[in-house]
């Protein structure tokens, strides 16, 4: 029996949490993102990452990709809560489907000279990061990949003069011929 902690039960129950990536197709109308975010904050769900953009201009459909964590019961609840919102067309759990690709883009700014510069360029090449801006004392790299790869790249850049990072958050899509 995998019951959640009761409203009457104060001690913390340790049910392992899982990370899930959800793709949500919504009608692109004012306030729709606020509804989704409000649901998460209002009900105490986690948002690890969130991306949103219109994907079908004519139909005014946007795609929201949310990475969230919770117990299996909470994840199931999140999906139902999203699905019952009026402007939500579909909710697909990309993690459960098991056949999805996740990508994130990051821009990584570095300041440094001499050996550090050379080392950074060498690592960037190994990670297939591109230089998209350069001065005599700085670089901006663009890197695409799954979150783990980007985390690893950032960790490597840190001792080499990391200044700042801008990340898009995760976008996900299913493999194969079928759409969601």
């Amino acid at each position: 029996m995998n019951q959640p902690a009761s409203a009457y039960f104060m001690e913390e129950r340790r049910v392992p949490t899982e990370a899930h990536t959800l793709s949500v197709l919504v009608q692109n109308e004012p306030g729709v993102l606020a509804r989704v975010i409000g649901l998460f904050s209002g009900r105490g769900y986690n948002i690890e990452s969130l991306t949103v953009s219109e994907t079908e201009n004519q139909k005014h459909v946007s795609r929201i990709t949310i990475v969230t964590t919770g117990t299996p019961m909470v994840i199931e609840q999140i999906k139902h809560q999203l699905d019952r919102m009026v402007p939500v067309y579909r909710v697909v759990d990309m993690t459960l489907s098991g056949r999805s690709i996740e990508r994130e883009l990051a821009m990584v700014k570095l300041r440094g000279t001499g050996e550090h510069r050379v080392e950074a360029l060498r690592l960037a090449e190994a990670f297939r990061a591109r230089v998209i801006d350069a001065t005599t004392e700085s670089f901006v790299f663009e890197i695409t990949g799954n979150s783990a790869k980007i985390n690893q790249f950032i960790d490597l850049m840190r001792p080499l003069g990391l200044v700042e990072v801008s990340r898009t958050g995760v976008a996900a899509i299913g493999r194969g011929a079928e759409g969601m």
Partner: peptide
């Protein structure tokens, strides 16, 4: 009628 009521508190 509301799927979010299912398995919310009790399995």
């Amino acid at each position: 009628i509301d799927p979010s009521s299912i398995n919310k508190n009790i399995r």
